[in-house]
Design a protein around this nucleic acid. Structure first.
Lengths: 200, 200
DNA sequence: TTACCAAGTGAGAGACCTCTTACACAGGAG
DNA sequence: CTCCTGTGTAAGAGGTCTCTCACTTGGTAA
């Protein structure tokens, strides 16, 4: 991390992951490349391959880090939301939206289909923990069965992800909606889904 | 379209668009390339450039076609859904989901941010018509204001798109949910959002 | 001090892409 | 019949990417 680094970087592995987040936020998954990350860090394009066997393995590590950070953001948001289980669960939508707008690393990165081929225990563990946290928040609102808690999580994640994508792609009349306004919409939609799961 | 085509293809422009749909459905936007579309049609990689100035213009034409087809699918689904305005609007979620699963061309293609740089009146017209149709369906459920109809459309599109992405990326426990089951979930979520917009 | 090893480097192979250029062909208008 | 125009081709320039290979560097341990 030192500006006057010598021949050795010091902690390239971690730097690759954080630089990958920056790149994702700026250009999206579509234009993400290992070479660009290396350029950004001022190392040779071969350097990343000392730490990751290939592009997908780097992305898998990013996925694991994103799952971890997102989980933290969700836990923090839930705690800010107070004690009411519905508010806590609804806050997931806002946390997700803000996290992805900031980092570009949403469920399309965390659960990217192409990463399923990469064996990565760390990633699996982080996604498992993330899902467990979501399920916990959903169960707390008092749905009768585990299956319904899962379905509720999926619904909330879907709506949060949907608002996030539409925001990013400029669907909302070319930026007529601010980040805050869109976050509020996402939360309102999540609340509606939670209420619907309750009345049944 | 004739198998034994001679030197000239016949209707390459239209074929490029339909072949692009196939490619999108198979490999996704990330791996879409003009060269691959040309290969698929058995023409040289230069041929598409007789009809489109560049990759983005071809994608813009695909976007226009997708907006048109999606609108047709939505209208058809609404008519199948009967006369109840809420059912008609909710059917949008199912139509969207099924259309994108089938074609790979969803709002992330139709409203892709990178296409905003391409001047394409046909595309603008198709997206306008699509949005108008959606707004009509939303207005019919009796929301008090235009603004709220817009917000309701956005919410339904968001949830439909969210379910679609999660389904495509394998978020639902590696395919534990079928297409039909997921479509049903999307419709149920849309119904919840419509009900929430009504109680207010 | 030496010798080792993890983690860099530069060069480049091989693949693929977008897009350009010069040329070839076919069908229709004159 | 001839020429024009539209639409195809072959070839390739110029770019980027992933990943490999032989080599270098500098900190650590014997």
């Amino acid at each position: 991390m030192s500006r006057d680094r010598g021949y050795h970087h010091g902690d390239l592995r971690a730097s690759l992951i954080t630089a990958s987040f920056e790149l994702l936020a700026e250009v999206g998954l579509r234009r993400f490349s290992v070479a660009a990350v290396a350029r950004r860090l001022g190392v040779s394009s071969a350097a990343p391959y000392r730490h990751f066997p290939g592009r997908d393995h780097l992305l898998s590590a990013v996925s694991a880090a994103a799952a971890h950070d997102l989980r933290s953001a969700i836990v923090a948001a839930a705690d800010r939301a107070g004690a009411d289980p519905s508010s806590r669960l609804a806050s997931v939508a806002e946390a997700y939206f803000r996290y992805v707008v900031r980092t570009g690393a949403g469920f399309h990165v965390i659960y990217a289909a192409e990463l399923y081929a990469v064996p990565d225990e760390a990633r699996r563990e982080q996604t498992r923990a993330l899902m467990a946290t979501l399920l916990e928040l959903a169960s707390a609102v008092g749905v009768p069965s585990h299956r319904q808690a899962v379905a509720l999580v999926e619904a909330i994640v879907a709506v949060a992800h949907g608002y996030t994508t539409l925001f990013a792609e400029g669907f909302f009349a070319q930026g007529a909606l601010t980040v805050d306004a869109t976050a509020a919409r996402a939360v309102a939609a999540a609340e509606a889904l939670i209420r619907a799961a309750g009345d049944r």
